[in-house]
Amino acid sequence: MVQVSERPGTAKISNLQDKFVYEIGVMYDAENRFLEAQQMMCQCCQHSQLKSLMENHIRETEQQIRNLEQVFNALGQQPRRINCDAASGLISDGQRFMLLAADNPKILELGLAAGQAKVEQLEISCYRGLIKGAEQMGQNQVVQLLQQNLQQEEQTAQKIEQCMPQLLQEAKSSSGTGSSKSR
C-alpha cells in the first residue's frame, strides 16, 4: 500500500479540480519519461520506416509536453510531474527487452514497435479520460489542447499498427522458423 507521505510533493485530493490536476501531473511525468525512452529507442532502431515514425513522434511528444504545460497554465498551476508508475513499468519492460534482444536487430525492432504500441494505448486511454474531465469542468481551452495530444497518439498508434506486419515478417525471416529448438 502506497502512503501519501511516500510521495513528496503530492497533496491530498479533495475535489474534482485536485483530481484533474493530479492526473495532468501524472500524464506530464509520463510524457517526459516516454520522450526520454523514445530518444533511446530511436538510437537502437535501424528500420527506416520505424525510425522515421519514432523521430516524428519524438517531435510530437515535445509538443504534447508543451500542451500539458499550457494546461497547467490554464488551470492557474505550475507544471508539476507526479510519478507515473505505469510509464515507469512500460519503460522498464522495454529496456529489459532491448537488452535481451540486442543480438537480433529484427527482433529488437519488432519489440520496439510493440513497446511503442503499448505506450500509445496507455496514452490514448489517459487522454480520453482527461478530456472527459476537462469537459465536465467547462475547460474548453484545456479540452482543445488535450484533443490535439489524443489525435497525435491515435495517429501514431495507427501507424505502428500498419508497420507491425512488415516488422513481424522481417523478424520471422531473420530467425528461421521463429520457434525455439531447445530441449
Results as ranks from 00 to 15, higher is better:
152 Q>T: 02
17 Q>K: 15
116 Q>K: 02
33 R>W: 02
99 L>H: 13
176 G>T: 04
81 R>N: 02
164 M>R: 09
40 M>T: 12
119 V>N: 03
113 A>Y: 09
137 M>C: 07
85 D>A: 12
61 T>N: 07
68 L>V: 01
43 Q>K: 14
164 M>Q: 08
114 A>L: 11
48 S>F: 10
128 R>L: 06
107 I>K: 07
16 L>Q: 10
8 P>T: 03
128 R>E: 11
53 L>S: 13
47 H>L: 03
107 I>D: 06
146 L>F: 12
120 E>G: 05
133 G>M: 12
44 C>A: 13
149 N>V: 01
33 R>M: 14
141 Q>F: 08
131 I>R: 10
112 L>G: 03
137 M>V: 04
56 N>P: 00
81 R>E: 14
96 R>W: 12
22 Y>Q: 03
155 Q>A: 09
102 A>F: 10
24 I>A: 01
52 S>F: 06
34 F>P: 01
31 E>H: 14
104 N>Y: 13
146 L>G: 05
94 G>R: 08
41 M>V: 04
140 N>L: 12
40 M>S: 08
30 A>S: 15
68 L>H: 05
107 I>F: 09
181 K>F: 09
82 I>H: 02
167 L>A: 04
8 P>M: 06
166 Q>E: 15
175 S>R: 11
20 F>H: 00
43 Q>P: 00
26 V>W: 02
178 G>C: 07
30 A>P: 10
60 E>Q: 13
174 S>E: 11
143 V>F: 13
106 K>H: 15
81 R>G: 08
71 V>A: 07
77 Q>M: 12
10 T>F: 12
59 R>N: 11
63 Q>S: 15
11 A>I: 01
152 Q>M: 05
117 A>F: 12
116 Q>E: 13
101 A>W: 08
58 I>M: 05
39 Q>H: 00
40 M>L: 14
114 A>R: 05
174 S>K: 02
91 I>H: 05
11 A>L: 11
52 S>W: 06
124 I>D: 00
125 S>D: 00
38 Q>F: 15
170 E>Q: 11
176 G>F: 04
90 L>R: 12
22 Y>I: 00
34 F>E: 06
95 Q>I: 03
20 F>T: 00
120 E>M: 03
38 Q>M: 15
126 C>K: 02
164 M>E: 10
12 K>M: 13
84 C>F: 01
165 P>H: 08
95 Q>W: 03
22 Y>S: 00
182 S>Q: 05
9 G>M: 02
2 V>Q: 05
23 E>N: 02
69 E>N: 04
54 M>Q: 12
28 Y>L: 12
22 Y>E: 05
12 K>N: 06
83 N>L: 06
153 E>D: 01
87 A>V: 02
82 I>G: 00
68 L>T: 07
126 C>R: 00
